[in-house]
Design a protein around this nucleic acid. Structure first.
Length: 559
DNA sequence: TACAAAACTTAGGAAAGGCAGA
DNA sequence: TCTGCCTTTCCTAAGTTTTGTA
């Protein structure tokens, strides 16, 4: 792997044979969702204007809907249709014959009850809140840790997802469906043979107990919406996740060494006589230049209609031979992961442009742009170019190299700490923009900006006062007054930096790139170089996740 | 080799926590 | 001490890649 052999020995005390993830694994199993508590008698459900007492099962599902009443999606046709269909499955035959129209269902009383409940929770006394906190801590202590080989490790998600209504992101065809309650009989336990096997809740048994040390999960079950498997795995601070993370960045650093060659290669391939090779080369160019995701095919009607690079359709791009004074502009407009819109106008090389024209010839808008390509073909090719290379490595590589470059460019040695941190955030922001990590502007954004502005105004006023006092002060008081002004000046500057940062961050989410794409050693090195406390860049959780990097990187670290 | 299933990483929003100023 | 706001943590969906199977 290079670059960190010493570290390797220190952090991975034992080597494992190929594919073996652990030798010993012991845990307590999952925590199940609390059982359903029926509503008090005085909370009513109405059908067609008349009070109706629901069976426990039907009532439980009704409460899921009632809790979502304020959300826009309970008004959506698909959501309502899916919900009603699944709800009816839980009804008794009498309920089924009575309740035939969702629009005649009145959940408002139930909804009010839940609102009152959550209000009451907020108003709880200190002691009551403390009691709940202690109970959570007990649960964490008992179920939140496992032993993997010689380490006690934190488990990420030891609580089983409670039942509820499925809400996918974007325009999901399954929104509103009932996510059923997971029982011990659904659960597969994975642990080592010689460990203390977790016991199922009284009166229940596990679906299966297995001892598979070729995988890292502790618990799995199959969810009923997509039929996919869900897992309980370890926290990012664990050895097994940390090592994998480190390995990911080492792969990206290997790409750095051969990326020029790969770029030359795909540029050559734009001229290939084979259509398949040309498509592959243009797609790879997009993945590299624009940090697009690979874009696997998805089953139609099972998920929201989103795409990545290989699954782009003709309707997702527009070609402009000339636009705003630039030649050969490609306009991208599509929904990517989580139905986040990707919109970008990009000048490309003439050859790319001509190829795109060729790929689009005689096609309908809904046809695949790269009809001779998929992620498996692309990744196979990448594997030939470099061992371990896959499409997503380009995102990691380009994100990390961009951070490193931007930090070099933006950091001003004369700046104070808040200004340097602003530069760091701007470098981080450049990456988030590259990776299209967006967020909905916070609901109170405008207000919060205004609050901050009035703080700034007040501080300016204070500064003016201080300066006036300084002017009129007697010689012996000048020094003290001057110090006071300086202090206020600094505070003002800090506030102004904060305002700039917040404004620039309105629609950008920095967390995702920080957590998943940026080699933490770059940040650690930057902190060391400029004497910035690491706590200013990484919070506690992040420091735990990146413990390996904090331990390892010196100020001269180069990605 | 192709396809499906399994495993694992990446993602944004909601809820909870905690802290500063009233 | 309370309130309101920002930060952190939780939650779990939605991707990518790897593995298994015929």
């Amino acid at each position: 792997m290079g670059g960190g052999t010493e570290f390797h020995i220190e952090w991975e005390e034992e080597r494992y044979p190929e594919g073996i993830k652990w030798k010993f694994l012991e845990h307590k199993g999952p925590v199940f969702a609390p059982p359903y508590e029926p509503l008090p008698e005085n909370v009513k459900f109405y059908y067609d204007g008349k009070v109706m007492k629901l069976s426990t099962k039907a009532e439980e599902v009704a409460t899921f809907f009632a809790k979502m009443l304020d959300h826009e999606y309970t008004t959506k046709e698909i959501f309502r249709k899916n919900f009603f269909k699944d709800w009816r499955k839980e009804m008794t035959s009498e309920e089924k014959s009575t309740i035939t129209n969702l629009s005649k269902c009145d959940f408002t009383h139930m909804s009010q009850y839940f609102k009152a409940q959550s209000e009451a929770r907020k108003q709880m006394s200190k002691e009551e809140k403390q009691k709940i906190k202690e109970e959570n801590e007990r649960l964490l202590k008992e179920y939140g840790y496992c032993v993997m080989d010689n380490h006690k490790e934190r488990i990420a998600n030891f609580k089983i997802e409670p039942p509820g209504l499925f809400r996918g992101r974007g325009n999901h065809p399954k929104m509103g469906m009932l996510k059923r309650r997971i029982m011990p009989e659904d659960i597969i336990i994975n642990c080592s043979k010689d460990s203390k096997i977790p016991s199922p809740p009284p009166g229940h048994k596990w679906k299966e107990v297995r001892h598979d040390n070729k995988v890292t999960w502790l618990v799995s079950w199959t969810e009923n919406i997509q039929g996919s498997i869900k897992y309980i795995m370890l926290n990012p601070s664990s050895r097994i996740k940390g090592e994998k993370d480190w390995q990911k960045y080492e792969t990206a650093r290997r790409l750095k060494k051969c990326v020029d060659k790969i770029r030359n290669q795909y540029r050559e391939d734009w001229k290939s006589k084979e259509m398949k090779v040309r498509q592959r080369a243009v797609a790879l160019y997009f993945i590299d230049k624009l940090a697009l995701r690979a874009g696997n095919e998805k089953e139609e009607g099972e998920t929201a209609d989103t795409v990545g690079c290989c699954s782009l359709r003709v309707e997702h791009i527009k070609l402009h031979p000339e636009l705003d004074g630039q030649e050969y502009v490609v306009e991208f407009d599509f929904l990517g992961k989580d139905s986040i819109r990707y919109y970008n106008k990009v000048p490309v090389e003439k050859r790319v442009f001509k190829n795109l024209q060729l790929f689009m010839e005689n096609k309908q808008p809904e046809d695949d742009l790269f009809d001779r390509l998929n992620t498996s073909i692309l990744n196979k090719h990448l594997q030939d170019l470099m061992e371990g290379l896959t499409a997503k490595v380009f995102r990691t590589y380009n994100a990390s190299i961009t951070l490193q470059q931007q930090l070099k460019e933006l950091t001003n040695p004369d700046d104070n700490i808040p200004a340097k941190i602003l530069s760091y955030n701007r470098a981080n922001r450049a990456v988030a923009i590259l990776c299209n990590h967006q967020r909905a502007p916070p609901k109170t954004f405008e207000k919060s900006m205004m609050n901050l502005q009035s703080k700034i105004d007040a501080k300016k006023e204070q500064l003016a006062d201080a300066r006036r006092e300084l002017k009129s002060a007697k010689a012996d008081a000048k020094v003290r007054r001057d110090e006071k002004s300086k202090k206020i000046e600094e505070q003002l500057m800090k506030l102004e930096v904060q305002a700039t940062d917040r404004e620039e961050n309105k629609q950008i989410a920095l967390g995702t790139s920080k957590l998943n794409y940026l080699d933490p050693r770059i940040s650690v090195a930057w902190c060391k170089k400029w004497g910035i406390p690491i706590e200013k860049i990484y919070n506690k959780t992040q420091r735990e996740k990146f413990a390996w990097a904090i331990d390892m990187a010196e100020e001269d670290y180069e990605f």
